[in-house]
């Protein structure tokens, strides 16, 4: 079931990129989508970890929130860069990821990195090492608002 869904998504991707809908190209698209899925099965990556289709619906509500966070923190980083004195206070800290599965932890770490001003430097188990541009960013992450949000995103199957 998951294999068919992945193949359908790949075929849609082919259609969007080609823009020519002759019978030959459509057949070639179907064949190459099927080949890709076969290669995924052989490489043992066609599982829930590589194609987390269950999270698609939760992503619809999670991404707008993430984009709002990105805009807010990017604006604060912009103000720091354009400030004549460059008021940075780089901080490193460790936060705990409370997600249950590894896609959840990866989502949390990538969300932290995607937000300007904070970078996930290292992962050991469920402890994420964070480098923040200003101390307030590190304190915000330690309070765990984003952590709870990602946990809800992961659990909303």
């Amino acid at each position: 079931m998951r294999h068919i869904a992945v193949a359908a998504i790949l075929f849609f991707f082919w259609l969007a990129l080609s823009g020519h809908y002759t019978p030959f190209l459509l057949t070639a698209g179907v064949l190459s989508a099927a080949l890709c899925v076969l290669a995924m099965i052989r490489a043992r990556v066609a599982d829930a970890e590589a194609a987390p289709l269950e999270l698609l619906w939760a992503a619809v509500t999670y991404f707008p929130w993430l984009i709002r966070e990105i805009v807010k923190s990017a604006w604060s980083v912009t103000k720091i860069i354009l400030h004549p004195n460059l008021p940075i206070s780089p901080t490193m800290t460790v936060v705990h990821a409370s997600q249950k599965t590894s896609p959840g932890v990866a989502t949390y770490a990538n969300s932290i990195t995607l937000t300007p001003g904070t970078i996930t430097v290292g992962v050991s188990g469920k402890e994420l090492i964070i480098h923040a541009l200003v101390t307030e960013g590190a304190v915000d992450l330690e309070e765990g608002g984003m952590d709870r949000r990602v946990s809800r995103f992961e659990g909303a199957k």
């Binding site: 990017a74 912009t78 354009l82 460059l86 990195t113 995607l114 970078i119 541009l133």
Partner: peptide, 25 residues
């Protein structure tokens, strides 16, 4: 702004924060 930050910031880690402004916004 991201490129200016890339030049102004003092070390590698802080430069990454500046580069991510270009990459996102």
């Amino acid at each position: 702004v991201g490129a200016v930050g890339l030049v102004r910031m003092p070390d590698v880690f802080t430069r990454m924060h500046a580069a991510s402004v270009t990459d996102t916004l």
